[in-house]
């Protein structure tokens, strides 16, 4: 057995999802290669130190924009004798992995949340309302991994070799134009230890500033329900839920969120859930560890002040 993990990096280090994927990979084999798709020395040096990684493969060439059309051949070339190809199930992995799996005629398994053995995996279906245990009959297996289900691998203590990898070539079919990332000093939503999320009850884009203040006090990330995103209060990448991000922080504070199934699917694995809502019958209270019935416009400023 050997595993090839596809790294997602930001010109500095790999993301939290990649670290979780490395932990998942260790449940399959001790022989773990990490394919880095950015030709940046700092990223490579950081990857080398990740505990559990035995080899860092450094891809070169036309890597800009992370285009699936350019990267799929690189990943295929890097597979060599790997039996399992893993990536985190973020939008990067979701975009690229099926393209590679199809070219290798393998039926990918998405969003793996538990590894039973080298052939058998558990994954959520129906937005996490059921869990399926699945055995793969393919020789080479392609998995995307749900980051919140595995601990992050330690970023120190490893001493992997860095080897030259495949060279990406440009295709004439797709061109990267630009990326507009939400700028924030706060932690990334899926990696944060504390998340403060707002729903339709927040009432306006301006009122979201209340949550920003609270989040800054707690060193938390800010999230939102689909209702708040659809109402235009915050950008789409804030969305926690079935069709947004899946988070599992130590503490999740849901403010003015009623608790639609679609939202719960994205946060129900949080360690401690606090709900603040003026409607005492809101479904969110049925799953919250601690509920506070009250007007968020009084509760949130008070909470921010007393912390």
């Amino acid at each position: 057995m050997s595993v090839l993990v596809i790294a997602e990096s930001n010109s500095k280090e790999v993301d939290r999802g990649t670290l979780s994927t490395i932990t998942a990979a260790q449940k399959i084999s001790d022989n773990i290669s990490l394919l880095v798709l950015e030709d940046v020395e700092e990223v490579l040096q950081n990857c080398k130190n990740i505990k559990g990684v035995t080899k860092v493969i450094s891809a070169k060439g036309e890597l800009e924009g992370g285009l699936a059309e350019n990267l799929a051949p690189v990943i295929i070339e890097a597979i060599k004798d790997a039996t399992h190809i893993l990536s985190s199930a973020g939008t990067f992995g979701k975009n690229i992995m099926p393209r590679v799996a199809a070219l290798k005629d393998s039926q990918q398994i998405s969003d793996v949340c538990e590894i039973i053995d080298q052939d058998t995996f558990v994954r959520p279906i129906y937005a996490g309302n059921a869990l399926a245990t699945i055995k793969s009959l393919d020789k080479v297996k392609f998995l995307t991994v749900r980051a919140t289900a595995f601990q992050a691998a330690e970023t120190h203590g490893g001493s992997a070799d860095i080897i030259e990898g495949p060279i990406a070539k440009t295709n004439r079919l797709s061109t990267f134009v630009k990326r507009d990332l939400s700028e924030s000093d706060r932690p990334e939503l899926t990696a944060a230890k504390i998340v403060v999320s707002g729903g339709r009850g927040i009432g306006s884009a301006d009122n979201f500033a209340l949550l920003d203040t609270l989040a800054d006090k707690l060193g938390a990330a800010v999230g939102a329900s689909r209702a708040a995103v659809d109402a235009g209060y915050v950008p789409n990448d804030y969305q926690v839920g079935q069709t947004g991000k899946v988070v599992a922080p130590e503490l999740y504070i849901a403010v003015g969120i009623s608790g639609a199934i679609q939202h719960l699917a994205g946060m129900k694995d949080s360690k401690v859930i606090v709900a603040i809502n003026k409607d005492e019958d809101a479904p969110i209270f049925q799953i919250a560890d601690f509920g506070l019935v009250g007007d968020l416009f009084q509760v949130i400023p008070e909470l921010s002040e007393k912390l």
Binding site: F92, L173, S174, T175, V177, D180, E188, P235
Partner: peptide, 14 residues
Amino acid sequence: IREIDGGLETLNIK
């Protein structure tokens, strides 16, 4: 325009 983790991305494809 694509929805990606952390924001939006623009591609031109043929």
